[in-house]
């Protein structure tokens, strides 16, 4: 995606979804033909516990304007308790991102079950709108082209 052109700029959102709940929830949104903004790029992971904070930082570094992480509801994890570990990590990541100046709206953690297509759609809509208002993310972004020319 081209982030440099302000006029055609569209928010780019990465969504890390767990295989068993949230990914299925997104699939269900498709089955129900629920229209949502085409700004989200879904990355399937087995469990929200699989999401390494590095993935989130890397996403911002690579020009993501927002990152959504979502797993099964607490107590419903396919792997019993992976989402509890995820939750603890996300709290810290959120603080870290705020510390480096990334607006809190850009990083969202949700629990979306396989039956909550509407919640997924609403989350994506809400995030896209919020990020559109904020404009492109500039923090943490690594401009590879610039780096290459510097070298």
């Amino acid at each position: 995606m081209d982030n440099n052109n302000q006029q055609t700029w569209e928010p780019k959102i990465y969504a890390f979804l767990c295989n068993w709940c949230s990914y299925e929830g997104a699939d269900l949104a498709g089955g129900g033909r629920r229209i949502y903004p085409a700004n989200v790029r879904i990355i399937r992971v087995p469990c929200s516990g699989r999401i390494d904070p590095v993935f989130i930082l890397k996403s911002f570094e690579r020009g993501a304007d927002g990152v959504l992480v979502s797993g099964c509801h607490p107590g419903d994890c396919h792997y019993t308790e992976g989402n509890y570990f995820a939750r603890r990590k996300f709290v810290l990541v959120k603080k870290l991102l705020e510390y480096v100046g990334i607006e809190p709206e850009r990083f969202q953690a949700r629990w979306i079950s396989a039956s909550e297509a509407i919640k997924f759609v609403e989350t994506v809509k809400e995030m896209t709108e919020n990020i559109r208002k904020l404009g492109p993310n500039t923090k943490l972004v690594k401009n590879i082209k610039e780096e290459i020319t510097c070298q």
């Binding site: 498709g30 085409a38 879904i42």
Partner: peptide, 14 residues
């Protein structure tokens, strides 16, 4: 690459 449930079915408006 899931381009039906997570693309064509949900972005038919554009």
């Amino acid at each position: 690459a899931n381009i039906r449930e997570q693309c064509s079915w949900v972005h038919s408006d554009n």
